[in-house]
Design a protein around this nucleic acid. Structure first.
Lengths: 143, 143
DNA sequence: TATTTATCCCCCACTTTTCCCCACAATCTA
DNA sequence: TAGATTGTGGGGAAAAGTGGGGGATAAATA
């Protein structure tokens, strides 16, 4: 399970270090792709394949299914870590997530998310106030 | 069950001692994460895992689910006590809870909460007067 | 086809952070 | 009063993150 928040930097060669705590969970091969809030998702291969299976069960005759599948699959790249535990972010993804030098890597259970630091701060502060309301309505019963 | 209120200090390395009365309940491994009112939650692993299971049942295609999961999971860190019974508060959490030197650790049943002392005093005095109204709507029947 | 250019990846080195251990002071208990 | 427990402070080793050089491979151009 991925949890935690790490602040790393992208160097001039476009590399970013994956936090060492995540490396053993991710394994040697994994997948990165576009995420929904202009961030980048990082999935272990198994998890990614599972989601793909789900997406493929949607009919291509539905507009939303086509759009989301295109969004999700076209952004995906199979990744291997270099020996220092770093990855190269493909430039289309880097552009999509608006990555500058300072990034945030967060664990959200079954995946990692890579955010531009500024965007992440903005997201967090924007939902701090709502979080009480959001939590209020997530579950009806005691969890 | 966690009850009580303790006033401890964070040292220059960001460490805070867990009150010894809580240590045996927490066990050797537990989890700290962001709490809703700008405080830090401390959960025994079992309790945390239970909540995570509930969260993972929500689809990532729902916005509120993504937001809350991100909020809750990204703040989380698995903790082991050092030999002095202290924990390291990760700096993102420390910032979130606005922790300075003096902190309050309170038991609230199934979890602990770590507050900045000043924020805790403020919260307590701010809702003391409303408590009558708050209590009014909690239950419909005798408890 | 040959030469140049660019990209990727490995290696080495440095800095910073983290974690573990030891020590001391204050409080509590017998 | 002596000993044990609890909270606090700090030193040092190990690990993690960061930056840059250089060689191999692939792509581009003449």
């Amino acid at each position: 399970m991925f949890i935690g928040e790490f602040h790393h930097t992208i160097d001039d060669k476009g590399r970013i270090a994956i936090p060492s705590k995540y490396r053993e969970i991710l394994g040697k091969n994994f997948v990165i792709t576009r995420g929904i809030e202009h961030c980048i998702y990082v999935y272990p291969s198994d998890t990614f394949n599972h989601i793909v299976t789900k997406l493929e069960s949607l009919p291509f005759t539905k507009k939303d299914a086509r759009a989301f599948t295109r969004f999700f699959m076209s952004g995906a790249t199979a990744i291997e870590l270099d020996k220092q535990g770093r990855v190269n972010i493909p430039s289309p993804l880097s552009l999509y997530a608006n990555l500058s030098k300072k990034c945030v890597i967060v664990g959200t259970g079954d995946r990692l998310e890579i955010w531009d630091e500024e965007a992440f701060d903005e997201f967090m502060s924007s939902c701090n106030d709502e979080m009480s309301d959001i939590a209020e309505n997530l579950f009806e019963e005691k969890i």
